[in-house]
Protein backbone atom coordinates (compact mmCIF):
# COMPACT_ATOMS: atom_id res chain seq x y z
CA UNK A 1 0.00 0.00 0.00
CA UNK A 2 2.30 2.79 -1.18
CA UNK A 3 -0.27 5.56 -0.64
CA UNK A 4 -0.79 4.70 3.05
CA UNK A 5 0.34 7.34 5.53
CA UNK A 6 0.21 5.07 8.59
CA UNK A 7 0.72 1.31 8.48
CA UNK A 8 0.75 -1.12 11.39
CA UNK A 9 2.18 -4.49 10.40
CA UNK A 10 1.67 -7.48 12.75
CA UNK A 11 2.04 -5.31 15.84
CA UNK A 12 2.08 -7.04 19.24
CA UNK A 13 2.35 -5.62 22.71
CA UNK A 14 2.24 -7.14 26.17
CA UNK A 15 1.71 -5.41 29.52
CA UNK A 16 3.32 -8.02 31.74
CA UNK A 17 1.17 -11.10 31.14
CA UNK A 18 -1.60 -9.19 29.37
CA UNK A 19 -1.49 -9.45 25.59
CA UNK A 20 -2.69 -5.90 24.89
CA UNK A 21 -2.28 -5.85 21.09
CA UNK A 22 -2.50 -9.05 19.02
CA UNK A 23 -1.19 -9.06 15.46
CA UNK A 24 -2.61 -5.68 14.59
CA UNK A 25 -2.65 -4.91 10.85
CA UNK A 26 -4.00 -1.53 9.91
CA UNK A 27 -3.34 1.09 7.29
CA UNK A 28 -4.61 4.63 7.05
CA UNK A 29 -4.42 6.51 3.75
CA UNK A 30 -3.65 10.21 3.50
CA UNK A 31 -6.86 12.19 3.95
CA UNK A 32 -8.70 9.24 5.45
CA UNK A 33 -10.75 9.41 8.67
CA UNK A 34 -10.71 6.13 10.59
CA UNK A 35 -12.79 5.64 13.74
CA UNK A 36 -11.64 2.98 16.18
CA UNK A 37 -14.43 1.60 18.34
CA UNK A 38 -14.64 -1.14 20.92
CA UNK A 39 -15.31 -1.87 24.57
CA UNK A 40 -13.00 -0.39 27.19
CA UNK A 41 -9.84 -2.43 27.64
CA UNK A 42 -9.96 -3.60 24.04
CA UNK A 43 -6.56 -2.03 23.29
CA UNK A 44 -7.81 0.83 21.10
CA UNK A 45 -6.14 3.59 23.15
CA UNK A 46 -2.95 1.57 23.41
CA UNK A 47 -2.88 1.14 19.64
CA UNK A 48 -3.43 4.86 19.16
CA UNK A 49 -0.57 5.67 21.55
CA UNK A 50 1.91 3.31 19.85
CA UNK A 51 1.71 5.33 16.63
CA UNK A 52 3.69 8.24 18.06
CA UNK A 53 5.63 5.97 20.39
CA UNK A 54 4.10 7.02 23.70
CA UNK A 55 3.92 3.25 24.07
CA UNK A 56 6.59 0.97 22.64
CA UNK A 57 5.67 -2.24 20.85
CA UNK A 58 7.18 -5.68 21.42
CA UNK A 59 7.17 -6.90 17.84
CA UNK A 60 5.86 -6.01 14.41
CA UNK A 61 6.50 -2.73 12.57
CA UNK A 62 4.82 0.64 12.37
CA UNK A 63 5.41 2.72 9.25
CA UNK A 64 4.66 6.40 8.92
CA UNK A 65 5.09 7.88 5.45
CA UNK A 66 6.66 4.59 4.35
CA UNK A 67 9.43 4.84 6.97
CA UNK A 68 9.61 2.59 10.07
CA UNK A 69 8.82 4.47 13.28
CA UNK A 70 12.07 6.04 14.55
CA UNK A 71 13.07 5.00 18.08
CA UNK A 72 14.58 8.24 19.34
CA UNK A 73 16.34 11.48 18.71
CA UNK A 74 15.60 14.17 16.15
CA UNK A 75 13.86 11.66 13.88
CA UNK A 76 11.37 10.81 16.63
CA UNK A 77 10.78 14.49 17.38
CA UNK A 78 10.14 15.07 13.67
CA UNK A 79 7.74 12.15 13.51
CA UNK A 80 5.85 13.46 16.50
CA UNK A 81 5.43 16.84 14.90
CA UNK A 82 4.02 15.06 11.85
CA UNK A 83 1.67 12.81 13.83
CA UNK A 84 0.09 14.98 16.51
CA UNK A 85 -2.03 13.73 19.37
CA UNK A 86 -5.17 14.92 21.18
CA UNK A 87 -5.83 13.37 24.59
CA UNK A 88 -8.92 12.48 26.57
CA UNK A 89 -7.90 14.75 29.45
CA UNK A 90 -6.86 17.68 27.17
CA UNK A 91 -3.49 17.83 29.02
CA UNK A 92 -2.91 21.53 28.46
CA UNK A 93 0.13 22.86 30.33
CA UNK A 94 -1.45 24.53 33.34
CA UNK A 95 1.31 27.14 33.92
CA UNK A 96 1.06 28.54 30.37
CA UNK A 97 -1.78 30.56 28.87
CA UNK A 98 -3.64 29.17 25.88
CA UNK A 99 -1.53 31.08 23.36
CA UNK A 100 1.74 29.83 24.85
CA UNK A 101 0.32 26.30 25.05
CA UNK A 102 -0.23 26.37 21.30
CA UNK A 103 3.06 28.14 20.48
CA UNK A 104 5.40 26.07 22.69
CA UNK A 105 5.85 23.14 20.27
CA UNK A 106 6.46 25.26 17.14
CA UNK A 107 9.00 27.41 19.03
CA UNK A 108 10.93 24.67 20.78
CA UNK A 109 10.64 21.74 18.37
CA UNK A 110 10.31 23.49 15.02
CA UNK A 111 12.47 26.46 16.09
CA UNK A 112 9.99 28.98 14.69
CA UNK A 113 10.55 32.62 15.70
CA UNK A 114 8.30 33.74 18.54
CA UNK A 115 6.33 36.32 16.54
CA UNK A 116 5.57 33.83 13.80
CA UNK A 117 4.60 31.08 16.26
CA UNK A 118 2.32 33.44 18.15
CA UNK A 119 0.63 34.71 14.98
CA UNK A 120 0.05 31.15 13.81
CA UNK A 121 -1.30 30.24 17.27
CA UNK A 122 -3.77 33.14 17.17
CA UNK A 123 -4.98 32.09 13.72
CA UNK A 124 -5.47 28.52 14.89
CA UNK A 125 -7.38 29.59 17.99
CA UNK A 126 -9.72 31.60 15.75
CA UNK A 127 -10.08 28.55 13.54
CA UNK A 128 -11.24 26.36 16.47
CA UNK A 129 -13.52 29.15 17.67
CA UNK A 130 -11.74 30.37 20.80
CA UNK A 131 -9.79 33.31 19.42
CA UNK A 132 -10.94 35.45 22.35
CA UNK A 133 -9.51 33.06 24.99
CA UNK A 134 -5.83 33.32 23.98
CA UNK A 135 -4.62 35.08 27.14
CA UNK A 136 -6.50 32.85 29.60
CA UNK A 137 -5.09 29.93 31.54
CA UNK A 138 -6.41 26.39 30.98
CA UNK A 139 -8.17 26.25 34.37
CA UNK A 140 -10.26 29.30 33.36
CA UNK A 141 -11.73 27.51 30.31
CA UNK A 142 -14.58 25.01 30.05
CA UNK A 143 -13.72 21.44 29.11
CA UNK A 144 -14.94 21.95 25.55
CA UNK A 145 -12.83 25.08 25.13
CA UNK A 146 -9.79 23.30 26.59
CA UNK A 147 -10.17 20.42 24.15
CA UNK A 148 -10.49 22.85 21.23
CA UNK A 149 -7.30 24.57 22.46
CA UNK A 150 -5.64 21.14 22.56
CA UNK A 151 -6.69 20.56 18.94
CA UNK A 152 -5.19 23.94 18.02
CA UNK A 153 -2.00 22.87 19.81
CA UNK A 154 -1.92 19.71 17.70
CA UNK A 155 -2.53 21.66 14.49
CA UNK A 156 0.25 24.12 15.33
CA UNK A 157 2.82 21.41 14.54
CA UNK A 158 1.38 21.32 10.98
CA UNK A 159 0.90 17.57 11.24
CA UNK A 160 0.20 15.16 8.41
CA UNK A 161 -2.13 13.21 10.69
CA UNK A 162 -3.78 13.65 14.08
CA UNK A 163 -4.46 10.88 16.58
CA UNK A 164 -7.50 11.45 18.80
CA UNK A 165 -7.58 9.35 21.99
CA UNK A 166 -11.21 9.51 23.20
CA UNK A 167 -11.35 13.29 22.73
CA UNK A 168 -14.90 13.72 24.08
CA UNK A 169 -15.02 11.10 26.86
CA UNK A 170 -14.04 13.54 29.63
CA UNK A 171 -16.49 16.25 28.53
CA UNK A 172 -19.86 17.20 29.96
CA UNK A 173 -22.57 16.17 27.45
CA UNK A 174 -23.39 19.73 26.40
CA UNK A 175 -19.78 20.31 25.31
CA UNK A 176 -19.33 17.21 23.20
CA UNK A 177 -20.80 18.76 20.06
CA UNK A 178 -18.58 21.85 19.94
CA UNK A 179 -15.53 19.58 19.88
CA UNK A 180 -17.05 17.17 17.34
CA UNK A 181 -17.87 20.13 15.07
CA UNK A 182 -14.23 21.23 15.05
CA UNK A 183 -13.17 17.65 14.28
CA UNK A 184 -15.77 17.37 11.50
CA UNK A 185 -14.46 20.57 9.94
CA UNK A 186 -10.90 19.20 10.11
CA UNK A 187 -12.04 16.06 8.32
CA UNK A 188 -13.75 18.14 5.62
CA UNK A 189 -10.46 20.04 5.14
CA UNK A 190 -8.79 16.74 4.31
CA UNK A 191 -6.85 16.01 7.54
CA UNK A 192 -5.85 12.40 8.10
CA UNK A 193 -7.42 11.33 11.38
CA UNK A 194 -7.40 8.24 13.57
CA UNK A 195 -10.14 8.70 16.15
CA UNK A 196 -10.69 6.44 19.15
CA UNK A 197 -14.22 7.28 20.27
CA UNK A 198 -17.59 6.08 21.48
CA UNK A 199 -19.39 8.78 19.44
CA UNK A 200 -21.11 6.56 16.91
CA UNK A 201 -23.00 9.50 15.38
CA UNK A 202 -19.65 11.11 14.50
CA UNK A 203 -18.40 7.80 13.11
CA UNK A 204 -21.47 7.49 10.91
CA UNK A 205 -21.33 11.03 9.57
CA UNK A 206 -17.61 11.63 9.19
CA UNK A 207 -15.59 8.40 9.12
CA UNK A 208 -14.54 6.69 5.93
CA UNK A 209 -14.00 3.46 7.81
CA UNK A 210 -14.76 1.98 11.21
CA UNK A 211 -12.32 -0.39 12.90
CA UNK A 212 -13.81 -2.51 15.67
CA UNK A 213 -11.43 -3.87 18.33
CA UNK A 214 -11.93 -6.36 21.13
CA UNK A 215 -9.42 -8.08 23.48
CA UNK A 216 -6.47 -6.53 21.65
CA UNK A 217 -7.51 -7.67 18.17
CA UNK A 218 -9.05 -5.96 15.19
CA UNK A 219 -12.26 -7.93 14.86
CA UNK A 220 -14.00 -6.09 12.08
CA UNK A 221 -13.20 -3.34 9.59
CA UNK A 222 -15.87 -1.78 7.35
CA UNK A 223 -17.32 1.45 5.98
CA UNK A 224 -19.59 3.03 8.62
CA UNK A 225 -22.90 2.25 6.88
CA UNK A 226 -22.04 -1.42 6.53
CA UNK A 227 -20.68 -1.64 10.08
CA UNK A 228 -23.72 -0.09 11.72
CA UNK A 229 -26.43 -1.73 9.61
CA UNK A 230 -24.88 -5.12 9.06
CA UNK A 231 -22.09 -6.04 11.52
CA UNK A 232 -20.46 -9.33 10.56
CA UNK A 233 -19.36 -10.62 13.96
CA UNK A 234 -21.23 -11.54 17.14
CA UNK A 235 -18.92 -9.34 19.22
CA UNK A 236 -19.60 -6.26 17.11
CA UNK A 237 -23.36 -6.90 17.21
CA UNK A 238 -23.15 -7.29 20.98
CA UNK A 239 -21.15 -4.05 21.32
CA UNK A 240 -23.48 -2.06 19.08
CA UNK A 241 -26.50 -3.42 20.94
CA UNK A 242 -25.09 -2.01 24.17
CA UNK A 243 -23.92 1.33 22.86
CA UNK A 244 -26.81 2.24 20.54
CA UNK A 245 -30.02 2.08 22.47
Amino acid sequence: MPDSLIVLDKVNKWFGGLHALRDINLSVKAGEVVVVAGPSGSGKSTMCRTINRLETIDNGTIFVNGEPLPAEGRELAKLRSEVAMVFQQFNLFSHLNILDNVALGPMKVRRQPKAEAHQQARDLLVRVGIGDQAEKYPAQLSGGQQQRAAIARALAMRPKAILFDEPTSALDPEMVNEVLEVMTQLARDGMTMLVVTHEMGFARRVAHRVVFMDTGQIVEEAPPEAFFTNPQTERARDFLGKILK
Binding site: R53, T56, A71, E72, G73, L76
Partner: peptide, 9 residues
Protein backbone atom coordinates in the same frame (compact mmCIF):
# COMPACT_ATOMS: atom_id res chain seq x y z
CA UNK B 1 10.90 10.23 29.28
CA UNK B 2 10.56 7.88 26.34
CA UNK B 3 11.49 4.25 26.47
CA UNK B 4 15.13 4.46 25.34
CA UNK B 5 15.92 3.49 21.76
CA UNK B 6 19.04 1.52 20.73
CA UNK B 7 21.16 4.67 20.40
CA UNK B 8 20.10 5.93 23.84
CA UNK B 9 20.89 2.54 25.37
Amino acid sequence: FDAPGPRAV
